[in-house]
Amino acid sequence: MNVLFDNLSLYANGFLGTIELFLVSAIGSLILGVLLAGARVSPVPILRSFGTIYVNTIRNTPLTLVLFFFAFAYPRLEIADISFFWRACIGLILYTAAFVCEVVRSGINTVPVGQAEASRALGFTFGQTMSEVVLPQAIRSVVPPLTNVQIALLKNTTIAAGFSVLEAGGIYANLSERGYNVFVGLLWVALGFLILVLPLTLLQRNLDRRWSTSR
């Protein structure tokens, strides 16, 4: 217990960092992922190949490498000075969006093709067909897998500790410097993550229930 109470502010700041990283990256990855999914099913061949190449490249790259790139290689490119926190967000967004894209695309494929045909026949543009007809129906079937992707993202934020963004995964390093029992300290971190995942699970259940009744 002492480990927790003696270092309460360390834990609080750590988890606050985790939540901030997660919220920014979750929203960013959902937006980018949906756009990428749109590109992958679009009638424009260049967009389709861009989406495919993006997903296959990023999905097959370890997250650590992506974050290393933004931590160490990016500053040397001298493009714009961005803080560690935002570079971590960008890395997490780019990485997670590839998975969001594939989940959303599989959801799009569950919508009967006639729905999009009817929409096109009525004069909707591709973007309107997506936003008015296809995505609202696709989203119902992707809530569970999308929650999985976001839970994975929540835990992936710990890798950002590798380049000194203070978040929950980095707590142990501080604890060992201060001479505490790292093992017990890590158990508390694990418990903290369990608590963070709970609201996501509840949200999933809620959305599942709300959207399943309206068909």
Binding site: P112, G114, Q115, E117, A118, S119, R120, A121, L122, G123, V133, P136, Q137, S214, R215
Partner: peptide, 16 residues
């Protein structure tokens, strides 16, 4: 296409 009405074999009404 907006000026051309189309009716399909499987209706294709928007399910949602």
């Amino acid at each position: 296409r907006a000026d051309v009405g189309m009716v399909f074999q499987s209706f294709n009404l928007f399910a949602h």
